[in-house]
Simulated assay, not measured.
Amino acid sequence: MAPEHPAEERTPRRRPLQVAAGVLGDLLFTVGVLLALLVVYSLWWTNLTAGRHADRSAERLRRAWSAAAPTAPTASPTGAASTAAPPPYEAGGGIGFLHVPGLGAGYQVLIEAGTDKDTLADGVAGVYTAPYPSAMPWDAQGNFALAAHRDGHGAKFHDLDRLKPGDPLVVETHDRWYVYRVDATLPETSKYDTGVIAPVPTGSPYTEPGRYITLTTCTPVYTSLYRMAVWGSLVREEPMDPGRTPPAELR
């Protein structure tokens, strides 16, 4: 009698539906990993690189200021235009610094000309050149309109929604301090609403030309669906002393 052979073990065949489910699961896992890496890149890596770039640019600007010490202009009355020669206004060039005590002690952001993608990606606040060319703080009247990212690329305006009427905004230039007061905020508007940066901003409490500042960024956080705006008006300006002593709002 022939010896019995053990039954051959058979690998169960997977049904097509099971194969498809496995492939789909692997695909979803891969997509999830890629999305996580994209978030890390967008919110952490771009903040890191933009912060480094902005710090280097700020250092270069302050060195340039030190090499050309400001003259000692006399203080001008509130609302009067500065007689001091303004710093150069060139695309991508440094204009000064925005200080916002309401966003934390020591908060400052470098201000550069332009709101194009490359400029704002460097972790700065950019000055609008279109559709309404921004006025400068030293101009007799107009709207000094700025934009910065809320998330990623430095996220300099991430907490812009914390500002409220009465908060000070201080612009530091080569030879003067410009002190503004927040008058109103616009929590949300269309990204196509260019009126918020007009010389007399649409929707603001202002009804006639003056010396204004507007800060804009995306909203809600982590999206670019809408825009928000903060409006302020000039309270006073102070000449820059050799020690660059900040105004009372920053002390």
Rank of each mutant, 00 (worst) to 15 (best):
A2I: 11
A2N: 14
A2L: 14
P3V: 04
E4R: 14
E4V: 14
P6Y: 04
R10D: 13
T11P: 12
R15M: 10
A20P: 02
G22P: 04
V23D: 00
L24Y: 08
L27W: 15
V31G: 01
G32F: 10
G32W: 13
V33H: 02
V33R: 02
L34W: 10
A36R: 03
Y41M: 07
S42I: 00
S42W: 10
L43T: 09
W44Y: 13
W45M: 10
W45A: 08
L48E: 08
G51N: 04
H53I: 11
H53T: 14
S57V: 12
R60E: 15
R62Y: 02
W65R: 04
A69K: 15
T71V: 11
T74V: 14
T74D: 14
A75I: 08
A75H: 06
P77Q: 08
A80L: 09
A80N: 11
T83F: 01
T83P: 12
P88K: 05
P88H: 02
Y89G: 00
Y89S: 13
G93N: 03
G94Y: 03
G96M: 10
P101V: 08
G106N: 10
V109L: 05
L110N: 02
I111F: 00
T115S: 01
V124C: 05
G126S: 09
V127R: 15
T129L: 15
T129G: 14
P131K: 05
Y132Q: 04
P133I: 01
P133K: 10
P133M: 04
S134F: 11
W138A: 13
A140M: 07
Q141T: 15
G142T: 03
L146N: 07
L146H: 05
H149M: 07
R150H: 12
D151R: 04
G152A: 08
G154H: 05
G154R: 07
A155S: 14
H158I: 00
P165Q: 05
D167M: 03
H174A: 15
H174W: 13
R176S: 07
Y180C: 08
V182W: 08
D183P: 01
D183V: 15
A184G: 01
T185V: 15
T185G: 00
T189N: 01
T189W: 06
S190I: 05
D193M: 11
G195V: 09
I197A: 02
S204L: 07
P205C: 07
P205W: 12
T207V: 15
P209I: 06
I213Y: 05
T214R: 08
L215Q: 12
T216Y: 03
T223A: 06
S224F: 12
R227C: 06
V230D: 07
W231P: 01
S233F: 07
L234T: 06
V235H: 02
R236D: 10
P239K: 06
M240F: 03
M240Y: 09
G243L: 13
T245E: 07
A248V: 13
